[in-house]
Design a protein around this nucleic acid. Structure first.
Lengths: 342, 342
DNA sequence: ATGAGGATGCGTAACGTTTCATGAACCGGT
DNA sequence: ACCGGTTCATGAAACGTTACGCATCCTCAT
């Protein structure tokens, strides 16, 4: 009889099956084992309801099939979606995810990195805006949206192309004067390129444009004031707005409605990210980030053992999606289809 | 000299400090140790940059300071917020979180529970709508929003009171005929009580009401049809709507706008959850779930070692928040303040 | 001066795996 | 019948910790 009321170990299974410890290990790991032994062990495993102890395994193997994911939070939809897709990509490879919600606080980020390394995670995926984080050599690391030097790969959307696409769309949809609205002026990360892409697009399409970029401490109310300053006789000077995220776009749309402006009749709005409402439709017309592909690529890069040299930056293609805040007159049939499930 | 290029162990620290292995352990765990030894060990730890290996620790202690959190996904804001707050509550107690995104798929949920137990997590918090999940005895378990029998505590908002509050608010705001819109007719969980609470509220305030409850496979379009069926001369029969979640409310608001109705002038809308936009303002007027408190309570219940008998159901108080989709004429000063940060 | 008793450092035995060297058993070929 | 070769079960060592029984030393009372 084995010990009462305690989860069974390989030893118990071995005793039950009347074989050696190592044999059980082989069966569990699918290594070649004689058929008669194999069935005996499998029966014993079933009988005792044995499950491997991954802590013992992790200790022995120095490999834990766990990765840490550093993210500011999970309640903003873009981050939440990212966590969701990273989870899926990891699950596919039988990896687990330790979620590290950092609130973008550098102290906490550093703390988490240390913790992750205590836990001997097999790698870290980080979405962090802080430069100067200390990453121990030896733990694979991949960042999202922020390049941290050529030793650490960074995965991002093609933000430049996205900005450009937004400008071109607005031009195609008949806009004459547009504006770009963003926050976080100080950040020097990939999403920054949305601005330059947009500028580029406006120039090449000869679109008149303006920029309103908030500094770090600024309240969103600055946007209200900016827009009001550009009102004339109840009409807005701009007939198109490009917002750096869908979240900002959502805010701006509220302001516009309060000003009595109709969307998209009076002013068209394009956001960035591709956030969907619970029904599956986009919050606004938007440049869609390929979140699932970003997640997949991060995991791929992180776990790829012997990639000779990891690329320092991977840009993934974005696309435009109609979300009722632009003035297309063709009926969109697929874009507000069911929430894609993968 | 210790092994090259490998993370240092307690043995290395002991060698460096010239003390025994056990002494290092004591220092690390804050057990009484002579001062001179203590400093020597601490210096060695600093010098070698030693970090405990939590896998070895977990193996030895049979306790891992990790809990698993089962959740349908992280991209719906309510779930995302929950994950965020659970993370905070765990961090406060120096626990880690293994995120298990299940897509509400029972197979996956079961798989995750098994995995979590392999990992010898110290507990599981589950938001799952599937009855009949098999939970091993011996692993503490707490559910959110779905009671799974009296042995397993369940934490939820006071959904009944929330429904009632919504009805009373609509009555106070001058509504005469209202409707309740919900999905997931088949589910037998706590949020179900929103309906009965609402009904109760309508009856006590003598409000005329109707229900539209979608079955599991139904498309949201059913809501469109329901609303259109209740249009008369360009006006909606209802002057107030209570939606079972903010997500549904958001969808309904789009439909209403498309029907040419103004919110809140023509029809007032109240949602449930308390989802906020990125700017920190509520998506709609809503019954706010105390997400942070729910998270805190779950963790509390889960980790409370020697609570004689765990309460089978904990209901936490909800509140009403103004979000521009109801017709209050008093100015709200605090409710759309900055995103609360805790 | 001596012995009892309290601190506290030491070494070692676990915890549950994987892996490696060892040797037993078997197979077919001569 | 014997032998080289292959296959495969076995038992022990190791992974990095914690905890326990001892051994040692120091203190204080007689």
């Amino acid at each position: 009889m084995n010990k009462v009321n305690s989860t069974p170990t390989m030893k118990d299974v071995a005793a039950e099956a009347g074989v050696a410890l190592g044999t059980v290990s082989k069966v569990v790991n699918g290594l070649p084992v004689g058929d008669s032994y194999k069935v005996r062990v499998e029966d014993a495993i079933k009988k005792l309801n044995y499950q491997v102890n991954s802590y013992a395994q992790g200790l022995k193997l120095q490999k834990t099939r766990t990765i840490a994911f550093l993210i500011p939070n999970t309640r903003e939809p873009f981050y939440g979606a990212l966590a969701y897709h990273i989870n899926i990509a990891l699950l596919k490879r039988k990896y687990r995810m330790l979620l590290c919600s950092t609130d973008s606080d550098m102290g906490q980020e550093q703390e988490y990195i240390k913790m992750a390394q205590n836990n001997k995670v097999d790698g870290i995926i980080g979405l962090t805006y802080n430069p100067g984080l200390v990453i121990e050599e030896g733990t694979p690391f991949v960042t999202i949206d922020r390049s941290m030097g050529s030793r650490i790969p960074c995965v991002a959307s093609d933000n430049f192309a996205g900005g450009q696409l937004a400008a071109e769309k607005l031009a195609d949809l008949g806009c004459r004067k547009v504006a770009f609205l963003r926050t976080g002026a100080s950040l020097n990360n990939e999403p920054n390129k949305r601005r330059s892409g947009f500028e580029n697009g406006c120039l090449s399409r000869k679109l008149d444009y303006e920029m309103k970029i908030l500094n770090d401490g600024d309240s969103y109310q600055e946007f209200d004031e900016f827009l009001m300053a550009h009102m004339k006789d109840g009409k807005l000077e701009f007939d198109g707005l490009f917002c750096v995220t869908d979240g900002i776009a959502y805010y701006i749309m509220k302001v516009l409605r309060r000003l009595g402006l109709r969307i998209p009749e009076d002013v068209q709005v394009i956001g960035f990210d591709g956030i969907r409402n619970i029904g599956g439709d986009y919050i606004c017309s938007t440049i869609v980030q390929p979140i699932a592909e970003i997640a997949e690529m991060c995991v791929e890069l992180l776990l790829q053992e012997n990639m000779p040299v990891k690329p320092p930056l991977v840009c993934l293609p974005v696309s435009y999606a109609y979300g009722e805040t632009t003035a297309e007159h063709i009926e969109m049939d697929e874009s507000s289809a069911k929430w894609e499930r993968e």
